[in-house]
């Protein structure tokens, strides 16, 4: 895990491409929305640096700007000001189609509402990122099958989402997120629609992924879920309020460290 000093060093060097260890570096990111004449300042200068293999939770109450940050980190949106370097590329300056490429290659999304195509089988859903990556059909099928087997859904790959349980759906989404070997797994409230037992199950999958070297960024408003990460960043009013290790976070909030 990165140290505070390292992070300050890399986020301070404006304009310089970070070295290969850093997957995510943001420097003074600002994002404003014009809501019918009223300017909403969702992010007011956010510096975040995430090294390869880190497992980071971004926490904050609603309105703290965590969704905006997650959209920018996920390359679904671009900042009004500041730099965003993702895996050595300056994505904050990119246009629509270039961002689509980056999303396809570098980011694996896991959403609260799963966002699977309802009429497509689990296999077809997992193949989708590979379709847009231009992978030939046979290889696509092989890799999608492999990804589904990794999340223990090898038996259910020809089922459609409505024939699967919530936990299974989220595992399909995880398989889809990982099938293209992304630099980061970006999860937005991944347990928001799941009961606590299933949530634990998904957290175990994340834990396993993190322990095998996958960089994981998880956005959540639940401290219990955030406490699964090795590092917890808390946002408040569009700025970073705290950036702690898991033991620090658990101790400060007085909650139990999760046992998986």
């Amino acid at each position: 895990m990165s140290t505070t000093a390292e992070r300050q060093a890399v986020t301070g060097a404006a304009g310089a491409a970070p070295d290969r260890d850093w997957v995510i570096v943001t420097r003074g990111i600002k994002r404003e929305y014009d809501m019918g004449g009223e300017i909403i300042r969702a992010l007011r200068g956010v510096d975040i640096a995430v090294k390869r293999n880190e497992y980071v939770a971004i926490m904050g109450p609603s309105g703290s700007g965590k969704s905006t940050l997650m959209n920018i980190v996920g390359c679904l949106d671009t900042p009004n000001a500041g730099e965003y370097w993702l895996n050595g590329q300056l994505v904050s300056a990119m246009q629509d189609d270039a961002l689509a490429r980056v999303r396809n290659k570098e980011i694996g999304f896991v959403f609260q509402t799963f966002n699977l195509l309802p009429r497509a089988t689990a296999l077809a859903n997992v193949e989708l990122p590979l379709v847009y990556a231009g992978v030939p059909a046979a290889e696509r099928k092989r890799r999608a099958t492999e990804a589904l087997e990794k999340v223990q859904l090898g038996q259910r790959m020809h089922h459609k989402p409505n024939e699967l349980s919530g936990g299974q759906r989220q595992r399909v989404a995880i398989a889809r997120a990982l099938v293209n070997d992304p630099s980061i797994l970006l999860a937005d409230e991944p347990t928001g629609n799941l009961d606590s037992q299933t949530s634990e199950e998904i957290m175990r999958v994340f834990e396993h992924l993190a322990s095998t070297g996958q960089t994981v960024i998880m956005v959540t408003h639940e401290p219990d879920i955030a406490a699964h990460a090795r590092r917890i960043v808390v946002l408040r009013d569009g700025t970073i309020a705290s950036d702690e290790t898991q033991p620090q976070f658990v101790a400060r909030l007085g909650i139990h460290a999760p046992q998986l």
């Binding site: 629509d96 689509a100 989708l128 847009y132």
Partner: peptide, 8 residues
């Protein structure tokens, strides 16, 4: 969904 997964 398609755009998020990389559709141009």
């Amino acid at each position: 969904i398609r755009k998020a997964l990389g559709a141009r």
